[in-house]
Design a protein around this nucleic acid. Structure first.
Length: 283
DNA sequence: AACCACTTCAACCGCAAGCGG
DNA sequence: TCCGCTTGCGGTTGAAGTGGT
C-alpha cells in the first residue's frame, strides 16, 4: 500500500526552517477563509512557498485555535504518564485526552522531562516497571519525602480502594502487582482494621491473616530483596506513615467500600496507581 | 567576556494508512 | 485489485537558549 517516500520533500525551491510572523498570519488568514485540509493543494498564499506537510504541521501544532501553551500541570503530567503506560509512544492517542496539547508537544515533554523523571524514580519509562538497580535509591527518596502527609493520604486512599476492589474473585492482586506475597500479606494485615474488612484479605495468598504489624526486620528484608518492586516501595512508605500518624487512620476510615462495577474495576490500572504514588512522592 | 556542555522544542523526514479512481 | 495521492504519525535533527566555568 502507499507509495515510495513523499517526493514533495525532495522538491527544490520550497522554503524550510522557522516560520516568520508574516507567514503565520498568511497561513492563518487562508485557513480561516477556506478551512483546513488539502494542504498539498494550498496556493502559494501570496509568497508562501512551503511543503504541504509544513503547512499542516504549523497549523496543527501552533496556529490552530485552542492550543494551550506553557508549562504542563501536575495533573497533566500524571495523565501523560498514565496514558503512556497504556498506549506507549502513541502520542496522538495521548494528545487526544489532553485538551489543547499537541502530540508533538507531549512527545517533546516526555523526552525532555517525564522520561528522566521516571528514570530518576527507578522506573523504566518503556515498561513502566521498576528498575531493580535503582530500587534502594527510590526507597530512600520516598521515605524522605513522605513528610507531605496530606498528599500521601489521598494517594494511600486510592491504593486502599484498589485493594478493596481486589475482592473481585476473578482478579489476582498478587499477580497484577508482582509483589512478594509475604509483603502484601503483612501490609494488608496491618491495614485491615482501617479497611474494616479483614475478610477480604483471606485467600489473597492462601494464608489466613494475622493481626501483626510489620517489624523493622521486615523493612530491612524488603530493602535488600531483589524481588522488591516499586509497589512495595510505596507500600513501605505508606505503612510507616500510617503507623506513625493517627490522622491517616481517621482519613482511611471514611473510605467507601461499596463493590465496584465491572467497568469501574476495568478502569483501574494498578501499575499506574502504584507508579503514580511513587511519582507524587517525588514531586 | 568567551567558551563549552547540556537542554529544549519547533520543524523536518520517512513511513504507513486511508481513500478514491 | 492495483495504483497513486494525501494525510497523519512517530522518530530525529539542529538552532536557540541556558547555565557553568
Amino acid at each position: 500500500m502507499g507509495r515510495s517516500p513523499d517526493a514533495c520533500c525532495d522538491e527544490q525551491g520550497l522554503k524550510k526552517g522557522p516560520w516568520t510572523p508574516e507567514e503565520d498570519r498568511k497561513l492563518k488568514d487562508y485557513v480561516e477563509k477556506n478551512g483546513q485540509g488539502c494542504w498539498r493543494r494550498l496556493p502559494n498564499l501570496g509568497g508562501l512557498n512551503r511543503c504541504g506537510k509544513s503547512y499542516r504541521l504549523r497549523w496543527t501544532n501552533y496556529l490552530r485555535p485552542g492550543i494551550k501553551r506553557g508549562k504542563f500541570t501536575g495533573e497533566e503530567e500524571r495523565l501523560i504518564v498514565h496514558l503512556h503506560s497504556l498506549h506507549g509512544n502513541k502520542w496522538s492517542t495521548i494528545a487526544s485526552s489532553l485538551a489543547g496539547r499537541t502530540d508533538n508537544e507531549i512527545k517533546n515533554y516526555w523526552n525532555s522531562h517525564l522520561r528522566k523523571k521516571l528514570l530518576q524514580m527507578g522506573i523504566d519509562p518503556v515498561t513502566h516497571r521498576p528498575q531493580p538497580d535503582h530500587l534502594s535509591g527510590c526507597l530512600d527518596i520516598s521515605l524522605r519525602l513522605q513528610a507531605d502527609v496530606i498528599k500521601l493520604h489521598s494517594l494511600q486512599k486510592l491504593l486502599l480502594q484498589a485493594l478493596t476492589r481486589a475482592t473481585t474473585p476473578s482478579l489476582n492482586l498478587m499477580g497484577l502487582l508482582g509483589s512478594p506475597p509475604w509483603l502484601w500479606s503483612r501490609l494488608l494485615q496491618t491495614e485491615s482494621c482501617l479497611l474494616n474488612g479483614s475478610q477480604i484479605l483471606n485467600g489473597l495468598d492462601g494464608n489466613p491473616t494475622q493481626q501483626k504489624p510489620l517489624a523493622d526486620d521486615d523493612y530491612c528484608r524488603a530493602g535488600t530483596s531483589h524481588q522488591l518492586t516499586s509497589s512495595s516501595m510505596v507500600l513501605r512508605a505508606s505503612q510507616t506513615d500510617s503507623v506513625g500518624g493517627s490522622t491517616v487512620g481517621s482519613s482511611i476510615g471514611t473510605l467507601e467500600s461499596a463493590p465496584p462495577t465491572a467497568d469501574e474495576w476495568n478502569s483501574i490500572n494498578l501499575d499506574y496507581l502504584v507508579e503514580d504514588l511513587g511519582y507524587c512522592l517525588l514531586e
